[in-house]
Design a protein around this nucleic acid. Sequence first.
DNA 1: AACTCGGGGCG
DNA 2: CGCCCAGAGTT
Length: 356
Amino acid sequence: MKEEFSKILLKWFAGHHRPMPWKGVKNPYWIWLSEIILQQTRVEQGLPYYERFVKNYPKIENLANAKEDEVMKHWQGLGYYSRARNLHATAKYITNDLNGIFPKTHKEILNLKGVGPYTAAAIASFAYNLPHAVVDGNVYRVLSRIFGIKTPIDSTAGKKEFAKLADILINKKRASDYNQAIMDFGATQCTPKLPNCKTCPFQKKCVSFQNNWVGELPIKTKKIKKKERYFNYLLINSADKTLLHKRTEKDIWQNLYEFPLIETLQPFDLKEVKKQPLWKTLFPNENIYIIIKISPPAKQILTHRKIIATFIEISITQIPEKQPFLVIEKKDLKQYAFPKVITSFLADKSLYLELF
DNA sequence: AACTCGGGGCG
DNA sequence: CGCCCAGAGTT
């Protein structure tokens, strides 16, 4: 079965593979970059970001020497921002500690920050044709269906079982082609919904097709619970200036910027917001501010969170001496990397006055 | 082993 | 609205 699986897959690949800018590229820096960008990210979504990074940082030393805020700004909107932080750290490490030479063994590649089992196998095979099998969401789906494996893919046992099977099935002489092929196959033929079983070259061998299980596989057991968080953002308007905060704490959106934030446990209530210590810090007395406008709640869905944000525009005559925020010119707002809920707000002029 | 980390697209 | 996407790091 092993040789036959690879043979059928590579034959399919010869007629179906989809063009992508990093395919055929042997530059390990570009391969690494593309793989980090594509973690938990659809190809169509990641592509413009890949082009942007290659254009701005054609060599790894360009990325290493960039300011972190600039890297984050280029990553803005792609999500999972630890990827950008680890990308930058790894670029510095390779440039400064490895003389700019990308590691060439699977073990060394796996040790890089932000590189796990999937990405290490992808880089090792695509850049050096090393025989390490990728196991991503596509591979779980393809293997679980064709071999009829009902072990949950989000269990430790499942991860081991699929990794072992993938290592058996890989064509070691054509590791790069094989890995590309199985992911393309999952992405375009053996799709999550409405897979194209009618034209599938594995139809006769596919255990789940023969048993009518295709729609049930792969199996996932863990369900994610979303918690709601209420963010009340203070848009401070003081002549041409406003206030910002960099999210350095261990939380969502680390190293992105935001307006002064008062988080509450309940939906927006001005009385509650005014009770918080930060309010007193910014507005020591009632005479120095005017609330101009309060936005309707803006919703932002994350994997484990639902953010409900309210934007409160407030004019003040003078910014207090003692306050913890970054004072910036409003015209410079676009230089900073913000989470989506803020960029969307700033992009919609109807939601606020002409203060910003 | 469970939890956390974004944002977008699709049925 | 729920699921999935070329997953990885932390607790």
